[in-house]
């Protein structure tokens, strides 16, 4: 009888451990929202990506449609080459869409925002987005502001 009780509580203990691991993986960490379902890859080149990181969100109209897959430097043009994994559910993005790097809030994480174009043809696997806008680097902005401010003074 006592042995049965011991076995039952140990069983509960182990099951609780497994359940909690599930809780940690799905509720606390981003295991479920992290994967993009059957993604297709789209490339874009930026003059400056600022603080963009791999796995940063790719959004259109504020809705998350994919994430940044890889970032590298194109040694021919000296531009940053960003590969985006976009969810297969959003396969009707016009080819003349434009990509810009924005910041969440004033100092938050950076992400790529896509603006739809008007073309009838849609982006597919391996295509590149030609219209891009670099990240706004806050330090440069402040520098320009100071420069303008001082040149206006007589």
């Amino acid at each position: 009888m006592k042995k049965q009780l011991i076995e039952i509580t140990v069983g509960l203990f182990v099951v609780a451990g497994i359940l909690v691991l599930l809780f940690l993986s799905f509720r606390v960490s981003n295991l479920n929202s992290d994967s993009v379902s059957n993604p297709y890859q789209v490339k874009a080149q930026f003059d400056n990506i600022g603080g963009l990181k791999v796995k940063a969100p790719v959004t259109m109209a504020g809705v998350r449609i994919g994430r940044v897959g890889a970032i590298s430097l194109d040694s021919a043009s000296y531009q940053a080459k960003v590969t985006m994994d976009i969810s297969g559910a959003y396969n009707k993005l016009p080819v003349d869409s434009s990509a810009s790097i924005n910041t969440q809030g004033l100092l938050g994480e950076q992400f790529i925002s896509l603006e739809p174009g008007g073309d009838k043809k849609y982006l597919k696997e391996g295509d590149s987005i030609r219209l891009t806008q670099s990240a706004v680097v806050l330090e440069n902005l402040i520098g320009q502001l100071l420069y303008k401010g001082s040149s206006n003074n007589p």
């Binding site: 509720r27 606390v28 981003n30 295991l31 992290d34």
Partner: peptide, 14 residues
């Protein structure tokens, strides 16, 4: 919860 899910990585952290 949403801030947590955004910042905690399953492999890296858990």
């Amino acid at each position: 919860w949403s801030v947590m899910q955004e910042g905690v990585d399953f492999q890296q952290d858990v």
